[in-house]
């Protein structure tokens, strides 16, 4: 991996309550994300994960601490509008509600919105739009009206609109939480494809475990602090920590945990059904010789 693309240094954020009290949301978070990484930030609602997204997106300014993106301090007061524009080209966001991100009444016009803002000539925009729609598998819908599409399809159009700007990093802010299972699966596949095939850095902020399982690295946030930082296998092998952080424990991990408590020495990754089945089978053949 190359040098750090996003550096978060001791980041804190607190908002003002009515009586002038400060309510802390983030308490000194430090996190480095390298180029090309696929990171899931896991946490329940109110854990501070969406505040982190808003800080990364320059919607909020931190109470203390810094965020450095590609060598530029985005939390600096002296950040010029042009510098901000440059940053927005590099780090883009996909939001929760697909409806509220689409601007135009025709799919391809919407995908073109970003490149149009960046001032590319129209042949270049055409190329980018076609390419982006192909990447998300929505080429045949180029001339459709967004409001007639399903949630998952709309979200993929929103993603196409963003990759048409050829960003270096995409932050998904709970982008699958309003989708049905098939829509979620399509969006997750797209995320993986963008990271693995296009080399785009992907940060996904979520509370869904299967979304985290697919990432290379999982960061668990609770109470505005980083609780855990590791591979999915490492994270899922600690059901207690997940439970305390208000998160779901995948059923397979829960079964293995219970069996361990009963004295069955199961050791190994078990965050997917396949791994778990294998683990149990191996145990049965090796230890008990069944």
């Amino acid at each position: 991996m190359e040098k750090n693309f996003i550096e978060i240094e001791n980041l804190s954020y607190a908002y003002d309550e009515d009586e002038g009290d400060k309510v802390p949301v983030l308490n000194g978070i430090s996190l480095n994300i390298s180029k090309g990484e696929y990171v899931a930030v896991l946490g329940h609602n109110g854990s501070g994960k969406s505040t982190l997204a808003k800080l990364l997106n320059m919607i909020l300014t931190p109470t203390s601490g810094k965020i450095i993106v590609d060598g530029v301090d985005i939390t600096s007061d002296e950040l010029t509008e042009d510098a901000m524009f440059e940053l927005r080209k590099k780090v883009v966001m996909v939001f929760q509600n697909p409806d509220n991100q689409l601007v135009a009444t025709i799919v391809e016009e919407d995908v073109a919105f970003g490149p149009e803002n960046l001032g590319y000539p129209s042949e270049e925009i055409r190329k980018r739009v076609d390419e982006a729609l192909r990447t998300v598998g929505m080429s045949e819908y180029a001339h459709h009206e967004p409001h007639r599409l399903s949630g998952g399809q709309k979200q993929r159009i929103a993603i196409a609109g963003i990759i048409a700007m050829s960003p270096e990093c995409i932050i998904f802010d709970e982008s699958t939480s309003m989708l049905d299972p098939s829509g979620r699966k399509d969006v997750l596949n797209t995320m993986e494809k963008l990271n693995k095939e296009k080399g785009i850095t992907v940060v996904t902020i979520t509370h869904y475990m299967n979304e985290a399982a697919q990432a290379d690295r999982v960061v668990v946030i609770d109470d505005g602090r980083i609780l855990m930082d590791g591979t999915p296998a490492e994270i899922f092998s600690k059901p207690d920590v997940l439970r305390n952080a208000g998160l779901d424990v995948p059923q397979c991990s829960a079964i293995v945990e219970e069996l361990k408590k009963l004295g069955v020495p199961l050791d190994g990754d078990c965050y997917s059904t396949e791994l778990c089945a294998e683990l149990i089978c191996n145990y049965l053949t090796n230890v008990q010789g069944l």
């Binding site: 299972p181 995948p250 397979c252 079964i255 059904t273 149990i280 089978c281 069944l290």
Partner: peptide, 18 residues
Amino acid sequence: LSIPQVTKLMMLLKEKGV
């Protein structure tokens, strides 16, 4: 449609001859 993870696990085990 999917099935609960537990059921999937049990079916996988059954397939593997457990």
